[in-house]
């Protein structure tokens, strides 16, 4: 494991290089075999460049990037809040419109019910009046007809007496060959018919 070039390299820095060259780990041109993160000769340069780069990074973020992101987030936040406000306002308006609509609908319904009721009442009253008029007419006609029937009956009955007297007189004459006085016949018929 004794590598010639490595040994030659380490010979320049004897104390530390010796042990490492035996394990064969140290590469040519390495910093004398010190584990690199513990090589303090690089510390000054690393700290300096870290300070420069991180310092610039910090300033850049603080001045430019973070205000920008923060601003964007704030604008979005405000926008969302205002949108929500507007949405709730619109919702309230819509609710009010719905309430007004409901109210008008109820009003209209009530009105229509009233109109329908009135029409129904009117129609009923009209029908009642018509019915009454017709009934009266019919009653009048009925009375008239009854009177006429009474009249006809009376005439007819009067005729019946005459016919009965004549017939009786005729029958008596035919049977007996005698004339019967009219008064006798009338009395007889009357007696029978009563």
């Amino acid at each position: 494991m004794f590598v010639a070039p490595a040994f030659a390299q380490d010979a320049a820095q004897p104390a530390i290089g010796e042990t490492h060259s035996e394990t064969g780990i140290v590469e040519e041109g390495a910093h004398g075999g010190i584990f690199p993160p513990f090589d303090s000769s690089t510390y000054a340069s690393q700290v300096l460049w870290l300070a420069i780069t991180f310092g610039l990074f910090y300033l850049f973020l603080k001045r430019v990037v973070l205000p920008r992101i923060g601003g964007t987030l704030e604008v979005r936040h405000d926008r969302i809040a205002s949108d929500l406000d507007q949405a709730s306002r619109l919702k309230e308006e819509a609710d009010a419109a719905v309430a007004a609509y409901e109210q008008e609908l109820a009003e209209a319904r009530r009105k229509s019910a009233a109109i329908a009721q009135e029409a129904r009442d009117n129609a009923k009253a009209q029908a009642e009046a018509d019915r009454r008029a017709i009934t009266e007419t019919l009653d009048a006609k009925l009375g008239e007809a009854e009177t006429r029937i009474e009249e006809i009956k009376r005439i007819a009955l009067a005729d019946v007496d005459n016919i009965a007297e004549e017939t009786a007189a005729e029958i008596v004459q035919q049977l007996t060959g005698n004339d019967v006085s009219k008064a006798t016949v009338t009395a007889a018929v009357k007696a029978v018919s009563q």
């Binding site: 690089t42 000054a44 340069s45 690393q46 460049w49 780069t53 991180f54 610039l56 990074f57 973020l61």
Partner: peptide, 24 residues
Amino acid sequence: VDLSFTNASAFMVATVAAASAFLF
């Protein structure tokens, strides 16, 4: 004092540049 610009310095610059560029 050795203040050389090394590969470590280069990658610090790269880190900062990449992060800044992305964020920007």
